[in-house]
Design a protein around this nucleic acid. Sequence first.
DNA 1: AACCCGCGCAACCGCCCTGGG
DNA 2: CCCCAGGGCGGTTGCGCGGGT
Length: 363
Amino acid sequence: MVLTSDISLDARALKKGPWTSTEDSILTSFVTKHGEGNWNSVQKHSGLFRCGKSCRLRWANHLRPNLKKGAFSAEEERTIVELHAKLGNKWARMATQLPGRTDNEIKNYWNTRIKRRTRAGLPVYPADRAKSCSFKYYVEASDGRSFISGKNADCDLTSSFSRQGGCLDSFHPISRRDNRSLNNRTFMTAVPPSSAVNQGINHLVFEGTINSYHCTEVIRNRQDDRNAVTNESGPFAESSSDESNMISRSDFIFSSLAFDRGYMAGALLSGSDNDLGQSLVLYNQRTTHENPITHYGPPVSVATLKQELPSSQSAVSADSTGTQRSSITNPSPIIPSNNILSETDSYGSNASNYLEALIQVTF
DNA sequence: AACCCGCGCAACCGCCCTGGG
DNA sequence: CCCCAGGGCGGTTGCGCGGGT
């Protein structure tokens, strides 16, 4: 026999919206009596018409003891900036370093801070922090026919995106072959999703041809520290038919670059055919304040990935949403070995979030 | 005084992970 | 091994408030 109380409980919609002081006291006394956890039983046994999740959130963010309220102190703010530089949007982990503060508080603080600084044209990270994570990246054809170089000396790519509405204004391409500056080339982005930009992580996929660039691709970002987005038939195979067309008419497709607060987090070089794929090289270098030695990331190509991944790795893996990813940790034989440090851990430990962006590069 | 607008915060939503059955 | 419920977490939204016009 079904209890009528169960029926009425199911039939009654659970309450949403702001909590009343009565609800607060019911929840507080219940948790005091029974302890934290088993939040769904709170709803069942306390008379609160709130879902377990809502109860947990209310307790964690407002009712539990030793919560600090009010504005963050200068010290706390400094800590948050440091932690965000280190951890990314790991609010819960950050909260463990800030006694009395909740992940929600920290997240809100950070998001409004990002907004403020972006609006003011300031870098997301203070200058001293920015200096600690400069990076450069390069893509070139191994035969020297073309070259593209990206440089961001002050870790400001993130804010550049935000400030310029998506422009990579600190991206200065140069030609290695003849040392000619290519600064007249334009970089334009479109569709920088505001929320992702605000998180400060940019994950780019470029498409181009050897001598003239037309980067137009979208970027699909998944939370994955070490992988760039792609699949076996190229980065855009899962994309729309338009994108597939771009693949077929382009000479090559290169790079899925994940930037995270100035760190090059991941990269993938791919080719629409094997020859081009193998003739292209992408590598990146990262210099951090903590470790001033420049690390060249292992360059990759589709062919290299397929051929040389250790058995423990898979060039392509699928997550639960069906997004396929490619590992990028494998060195390519194309790059002189003295330029490469196999420091796979230098990748992605900071990459945690993603954005979609449409990038157009015209030379 | 009324209206508008932007900001900040609380709360919700949806995804993911984990553990138990 | 699979399924499901519970819980955790990050992203997003909506509302109230205060300042400006």
